[in-house]
Design a protein around this nucleic acid. Structure first.
Lengths: 240, 240
DNA sequence: AGAGTAGAGATTGTTCAACAATCCTGCAAG
DNA sequence: CTTGCAGGATTGTTGAACAATCTCTACTCT
């Protein structure tokens, strides 16, 4: 028995180390530059519609033009930048059609993940829900501190971790893209509190339903949740 | 009235022209190089596991190393190549887990597209189904000529056009990726006829159900279709 | 013989400078 | 008000160079 447990512990340790190594390995100059730009975009320092000048950014980021262009490509395929041939790269300006498109995909993927849990409930260890709990509590703490952008970040992570329950690398990647694009939309909305506040409690409710293994109920709630969220963003869009 | 119709005609014309312009604009050296590599990979000239040497390909494709690397980045984010830092780019070797992952997403997306048609049936012009009919007939013709890889291509296009009915740019992009990865799998399977033949008739059946607006039935059929296809590939995988 | 190691050679990562191709701006002409 | 045309600025692409890392071979030591 003890060797079995030790083996399990060792496996878990190997996974975390492998993740760390991958994180270090990842550090090519292009990806570091992309990290910085990604933060600037998702935090709103680079507003939608802004053009990113090559010469300007090579000086700020201290990388060559070629490396910077590799960073641009990375972000382009995350949906955070768009290339216009011979004109440069821009932060995309999403419109109401994009909101509808993004939410359609979110609904399909996230609801399917939860429905998928019904079949494989037994093999799902209880601690798989821990990241979700952490995100819920982080959002609640940030709300108490009046830090609404942080609330938005925690809510995003909640949904990313929710998708993570499916153990699908491709769903994780797609969701990363979708949520990144969604953040683009947040910055054209003036009121971050009204935007994020209602979903703190709903995330907790969702988490508790999952904990209680009431997957059908959770799926139905999440479906309505995403419809409401979509309507909220569309409404803010029209009145801006 | 007549001005209204002329306006509609003008709009349609503008759309087709815009599409043509986009197609011409696409011609950067990096994307042309990516096109050639994409064909080589999806047609199997570059088998899974193969490494792509930079110096070698700069000579063949007649582009500089920097431009070639941009092409690599493009294909990396389509899932057709993987980067290993300081070791180069490789054609990925997918395994059975990837098959399960890919088919899970295909099922979710494609079935949802058809279910989505139920609500918006009235606004769906009949000619939207034409591309699907063309693909079905192309597959049948290729089968008669014993050109099984061409059958596979036509089948792929059928599913891409199926997703296209949703008018979702992001679903189109995701599907493009998923199907490209799927082609990677086809090349490790020896018997292309056994792989593709069963689905010629099933695609036609699906098309006829859509034409008859029996969307519920079509969704159910497609679901089972994709399960069977997944099992076929998994079976071929295990016996190879 | 086998395990470990040092170093040479090859490949990738990144930079730089230059030139070609394209786009944008402003202005003049019709 | 539109059209056509500089010219200046920006992007697209190239080639060479050097640094960083990996791979493979040959060697040493036990």
């Amino acid at each position: 028995m003890s060797t079995g447990e030790a083996e399990v512990g060792r496996q878990a340790w190997l996974r975390t180390v492998a993740a760390d190594v991958a994180r270090l390995d990842r550090s090519s100059s292009a990806e570091r530059a992309a990290d910085i730009l990604r933060r600037s975009i998702t935090e709103g320092a680079l507003p939608p519609g802004a053009q990113l000048s090559e010469v300007e950014l090579t000086e700020v980021l201290e990388v060559s033009r070629n490396t910077l262009r590799e960073a641009f490509r990375l972000l382009t395929h995350e949906g955070l930048l768009v290339y216009k041939l011979h004109r440069g790269v821009f932060v995309p300006e999403l419109d109401e059609n994009d909101v509808v498109d993004l939410y359609r995909l979110r609904r399909v993927l996230e609801v399917d993940v939860i429905r998928g849990l019904i079949d494989r409930d037994p093999e799902l260890p209880a601690d798989r829900l821990e990241p979700l709990q952490d995100d819920v509590e982080a959002a609640e703490a940030a709300a108490r501190a009046d830090r609404w952008p942080a609330v938005g970040t925690a809510n995003m992570r909640f949904h990313q971790h929710l998708i993570g329950l499916a153990d699908s690398a491709r769903m994780d990647a797609m969701t990363g893209r979708l949520l990144a694009e969604l953040r683009l939309l947040f910055h054209v909305i003036a009121a971050p509190r009204e935007l994020h506040e209602p979903y703190i409690a709903r995330n907790r409710g969702l988490f508790e339903l999952l904990e209680a293994r009431k997957y059908d109920q959770a799926a139905a709630d999440l479906h309505q949740y995403l419809i409401d969220s979509e309507q909220g963003i569309l409404g803010a869009f029209r009145t801006r």
